[in-house]
Each structure stands twice: as structure tokens, then as C-alpha cells.
Design a protein around this nucleic acid. Structure first.
Lengths: 113, 113
DNA sequence: CTAACATATGAGCACTTGTTCACATATTCA
DNA sequence: TGAATATGTGAACAAGTGCTCATATGTTAG
């Protein structure tokens, strides 16, 4: 006799494919990047634009340091890329996937109105 | 004279449409739900399945209470819905949007291999 | 070289979050 | 009714996070 004999429908459960923990962890890491308003704003202004830290900070009306920190975390997980021009560092989105993720989330939010 | 006269390219900046803070906040709230492995796993097993708390806890090999807490938060933001059958409460995904968001994140993660 | 500027980064802090534990509530069945 | 089961929930705690401040590094112009 098992612990859960009453409520768990084993026939049903049996056919559900097992969750892959590693993949779920990585997905969570990815979505975590989208789980902060500042990072969303940064990625939003970087859509179709290459901007330096100063410009982003100006557009979002925020501290340079805060932006720089966030850009660093976005870069670690390969959501943005950068290249240096003199003292300035220009950032852009790393791939088109990101814009797609943003737009789906945006749609979902707007739908609820 | 302004504070940022050197680095900010006003011509470029001018054409970037302003970020809508409210929408970004809501998007962040949405993505926050996907920013935790447990919640991702829950939503994953709920794809195409209606499951009660006990079944989900069994599948994920986790505490009933942890699952119940997470389901409560998922329900508040309308990502899952539930209906009661006797003492059991069956949960399912609230809409198809959710599966789409999950699959895009999954794709992105798998692509990096 | 020095001053000015752009960016990066570490420490510190307030705040949030996910889990567990203990208990409450709800439902069924004997 | 009372025992057993399923779920919900508040408190507490450890861990994580985002911002600010101070400072470091890097770059250019004078």
C-alpha cells in the first residue's frame, strides 16, 4: 500500500511526461531577467536601437550605476551584447528571440484590459 | 547647457518611443511568475492536464504546502484556474497564452546547446 | 600628465521571496 | 459525531535582489 492511494489518479499521472528539472531551472533564470521593470525598460529601449549607458539612463531617468549593474546581469545571460566606441559602450539586444518574448508578455498584459 | 551634452545623441534618442512604466510593471509581474523553477514545473505538468494539489506534489516530489502556496500565487495573477470536487481541488492552466510563453522560453534555453 | 567624463564594480542596505512548520478549515465516511 | 484526508494559510527564516554610494578603471582632450 502506498502513501497516496486515494487522491492520486495513477492512470492519469502515468501519461504525464516527467518535468526536466535542469531545463526548468534554466527557464527560470531566463524569465528572471524579464521579471524586473528596469530590465524590461532597458530591453524595450534597446529594441531596434544601439544605446550607451548614458543614453539609457537618460531615457529611463535613472542612475547610471543602476543601469550599468543591470546591463552587466543582462550580458552574463546573453540577452544583450556590447561594443566599445571610445569611452562609450554601446549595448543592443543579443537576438530576436528577446523581442518576441517581450511582445508576448506585452500582449498578455494588454489583453486583460 | 544640459548635463549630458557629449554622449547622448539627441537625434537618435528623440525617435525612441517612451517606455510605458505601468505596462512594464505589469509585464514584470507576469514574468515573475515564470521566474521560479517550481512554478514552471507546476505549469508544465498542468499543460493538457487537470491535477489536484496532491498529484502535483507527488509529480514534483515536493511538500503539499509549498505547492499550495505557489498555486495560490499563480491563481491571484490568473495563470491557473481551479474547481473543487469533494475535498480535492483541481487546477488547470487559465489560458493558452501560458503554454506559448513556456514553449518560447523552453526553445530559447534549448537553443543555447 | 591632468582634468573631465563614461562605465564598471564592490559593499551595504532595505526589501522581497520560497520554503517549512504548525495549525486551521473543509469534506467524506464509518 | 469523530477520524481521516485534502487543502489553505500565517509566521518565521534563510536566501536572493535592486538600488545607492563610494570608488576604481578606462578613455579622451587639453
Amino acid at each position: 500500500m502506498e502513501k497516496h492511494q486515494h487522491v492520486i489518479n495513477m492512470e492519469k499521472i502515468k501519461n504525464i511526461k516527467e518535468v526536466e528539472s535542469d531545463i526548468c531551472e534554466e527557464m527560470a533564470v531566463l524569465y528572471k531577467m524579464f521579471a524586473d521593470p528596469t530590465r524590461i525598460k532597458i530591453m524595450q529601449v534597446l529594441q531596434n536601437n544601439e544605446l550607451n549607458v548614458c543614453e539609457i539612463a537618460y531615457l529611463l531617468n535613472m542612475n547610471h550605476s543602476a543601469i550599468s549593474h543591470q546591463l552587466a546581469t543582462l550580458k552574463i545571460v546573453n540577452l544583450v551584447k556590447s561594443h566599445k566606441v571610445g569611452k562609450e559602450v554601446y549595448y543592443s539586444l543579443a537576438d530576436e528571440h528577446i523581442a518576441k518574448i517581450l511582445s508576448i508578455g506585452c500582449e498578455h498584459v494588454l489583453e486583460d484590459k
